[in-house]
Design a protein around this nucleic acid. Structure first.
Length: 301
DNA sequence: TTCCAGGCTTAAC
DNA sequence: GTTAAGCATGGA
């Protein structure tokens, strides 16, 4: 079966290979499966699992092609929703020319702007998934964070078998309304993380928090303040969500150990930079701090 | 063994 | 308002 769902025009400065390289940084990733030419991901559309493959159609003009691998072909409205998700997943409607005008002459960013040309911030458009991924990643190494996400997803998410591989969809918040803290602790979440995941799930499931509501606030800082009110959500998590879910290019997680280590490595400092020093480095990046961070992370791999 | 991981909360000053 | 300890586990 090779059922075309839609094609999206690709902007200047888009390189699927560079994006896939980032997405492939852990073999433990459970929410999509990529190869050299594309990525497969399970979606739930109209309540039914749908396995979709994204590739680049090479004939001019370049287009991102979505094909249906498995599941029932969704209706036009669901397909339009999926297309919007893909645009946000790969940040396709962003003009990167201003970022490269900065990065190409920046001592820290220039090598990455060359080697990672066409990399876009890989988003986490679903707010619950983004919050959970950030919560799981607090203070632990990435490999362990991926294991926690895999356990949570395998236990509570939907799945679909296709050609010998199981594809998973991140659990919806409603699923956690009947889950206890002890159950999540048995997956090796700390009590704090388990509690935070359950409280965030209940809040989102009950309509007390949504991506739309955060985006409707007057500024990204206001969205950050809203998230900071939640127990278990601190500065790093709220800035991370601004960057990867709310698509705020000015988000700058100065407390991020990966960012600190990348700057330490690229500058040759004998210690990690302080948040104040990171803010100094970021002065020329004004407006593109999140993209700078995302590119700097690539220096670690 | 020790230290660090894409931190946050609580308690104590 | 700032600082220190506790959290839980895996990897180097």
């Amino acid at each position: 079966m090779n059922d075309l769902l839609f094609e999206l025009p690709l902007p200047e400065f888009f390189d699927l290979g560079a994006c896939l390289a980032y997405m492939n940084r852990s073999p433990l990733e459970c929410l999509f499966r990529s190869d050299s030419k594309g990525v497969n991901r399970l979606f739930v559309l109209e309540g039914a699992p749908v396995l979709v493959r994204l590739t680049v159609a090479e004939d001019q003009p370049l287009r991102l092609k979505a094909t249906l691998l498995a599941g029932v072909r969704p209706g036009a409205e669901a397909i339009a929703d999926l297309a919007r998700y893909i645009v946000e997943w790969f940040d396709l409607d962003r003009d990167l020319a201003p970022f490269y005008r900065i990065a190409d002459v920046d001592p820290l960013l220039r090598p990455l702007a060359v080697s990672e040309r066409g990399l876009r911030i890989i988003g986490i458009p679903d707010l619950f998934e983004a919050l959970c991924w950030a919560i799981l990643g607090q203070q632990v190494n990435l490999a362990f964070a991926y294991r926690l996400k895999q356990r949570l997803t395998a236990e509570y998410g939907e799945s679909l078998e296709w050609e010998g591989h199981t594809y998973y969809h991140f659990p919806r918040p409603e699923v956690f309304l009947t889950v206890t803290q002890e159950e999540l602790c048995s997956l090796q979440l700390t009590r704090n993380k388990a509690r935070t995941v359950l409280e965030v799930a209940a809040l989102i499931a009950g309509g007390g928090l949504s991506r739309e509501e955060l985006l409707a606030l007057p500024t990204p800082e206001a969205a950050e303040q809203r998230l900071l009110k939640l127990r278990g959500i601190g500065p790093w998590t709220s800035q991370y969500v601004r960057m990867r879910c709310l698509r705020d290019t000015t988000a700058y997680p100065v407390g991020d150990v990966g960012l600190q280590n990348a700057v330490k490595f690229l500058t040759g400092m004998d210690r990690k930079p302080t948040p104040a020093e990171l803010l100094e480095f970021a002065v020329p990046w004004h407006g593109w701090e999140a993209y700078a961070t995302f590119y700097l992370w690539r220096a670690l791999y």
